[in-house]
Design a protein around this nucleic acid. Structure first.
Lengths: 239, 239
DNA sequence: ACTTACATGGTTATCATACAACACTGGTCT
DNA sequence: AGACCAGTGTTGTATGATAACCATGTAAGT
């Protein structure tokens, strides 16, 4: 029997819950930039935890740039929410709308990355992509090796753009998407899908190799559209 | 005298120092992925702080995905460093290649955002954009008010996509770009540029109002191309 | 031999309290 | 009015204690 246990034992840490709670207050506008947060004592009381836990939560929010605090005065909501880091709340992603938004964002980046890659790819890039496809062909659909190689293919496309931040952003977004998909756990397995997916990848590679940006864009768009269906994101209206 | 003080008043917080210190250990490879950190007691002793401070530092590192901890076992260095946050190093952006990459990334997002906004914008969105253009028209080119309104216009376009993360990502990227431009300080001032820039904005707005995605895409692309020239980023080959 | 139950030590998670450092307010004194 | 000063509230830090949990070893039971 294949037991399916929860992937992550979603942080039982109280400080995480408190931080998410405050974070939500800010996101939903109940705490406006510049506003002063309740005192640590009050927060501890309202949440029913010790002041210590509240402090850990605040330390976290401070590091994320969402709030700032000064000894003797208090803690305040930061004017520009995201100072130097960009954070995606895991809990928020459980909601369908958020997931769909993130998926769309990933689509935009991947599609344009494919187009840029077609223009700028080097011989080494092509080699790496081909290797990835070969490895994927031998791996069973949905296996760890398959997923890993799939990720590597896309990462190579991103790297082939020559854009230093494309890889960083795309892996970041893709990771979040992948987590959500795994968490929802509604992926089908089939031999046919393997062939279909491989074909999509192959077309992307062909277009990139040919240096045809528009074709690469279309191929990547088709691939992502197919992936969305495979995951169960049907309600997607493209232009 | 214009005093130029350190941008960030490097948090006097002890927890920040401890977190940075541990973070450095990880970055420099003295703590490898999977390694177990010293116990909180030991860390508190070696750093000469209370265990409470160590815990706040660990809470921060945990939220950054650098380490994970489990009750009864200990704290360990995470395998994949970037779990939930995305960071862009400020120093790295000083290099031209990095800046150009980020500018390109922003372009991709803005252009597609404009196209999506043309399809999905509401009446309120159009109102906000129009207000922004009026305000910008009255503000002197390059003034604080002008920059602020410019930012708001773009943010409204991003919001009009209905994509929950478009605003977040775009403001994040734009902020980094803006910082770099301000730091380099090579922007020209002129009355003509004000009119040109306003015209570009107007064309974007018109396309969005008309619901013409392709036109909005082109208008935004033209605007960014113009902005690149104004900032002195000439070497940009679009397909 | 193998499994189960229990005991023990070590670690994190949380709580509670106390004190120090700092900001703000209001009154007093000059 | 302006300077000084005490008082109060808040964050920052320290300290000790307790609960929950993991890992390991050992004894009891099968």
């Amino acid at each position: 029997m294949t037991l399916k246990l929860d992937k992550v034992n979603r942080g039982p840490h109280l400080s995480t819950l408190v931080a998410s709670s405050i974070s939500r207050e800010i996101a939903q506008g109940r705490l406006m930039p510049g506003d002063q947060l309740p005192t640590e004592q009050q927060l501890a009381q309202t949440f029913g935890v010790s002041r210590n836990v509240v402090r850990e939560a605040i330390a976290r929010l401070r590091s994320e740039g969402r709030i700032w605090s000064q000894q003797g005065r208090g803690a305040f909501v930061a004017d520009q929410p995201n100072a130097t880091t960009l954070t995606i709340d895991y809990e928020a992603l459980q909601q369908a709308a958020a997931f769909q938004s993130l998926f769309e964002l990933r689509g935009i980046l991947e599609v344009e990355a494919a187009a840029l890659a077609a223009k700028r790819r080097t011989g080494d890039d092509l080699m790496t992509m081909k290797d990835a496809l070969v490895t994927m062909r031998d791996a069973p659909y949905g296996s760890v090796m398959w997923l890993k190689t799939d990720l590597e293919f896309h990462k190579t496309v991103a790297a082939a753009t020559g854009n230093l931040y494309m890889v960083q952003f795309l892996t970041f977004v893709s990771e979040r998407v992948r987590e959500s998909i795994l968490a929802s756990g509604n992926q089908q397995r089939s031999e046919d899908l393997a062939a279909v997916t491989l074909g999509e990848h192959q077309r992307i590679l062909d277009a990139i190799e040919a240096g045809d940006g528009d074709k690469a864009r279309d191929a990547m768009r088709a691939h992502l559209h197919g992936a969305a269906n495979r995951v169960g994101l049907a309600g997607e209206q493209s232009e």
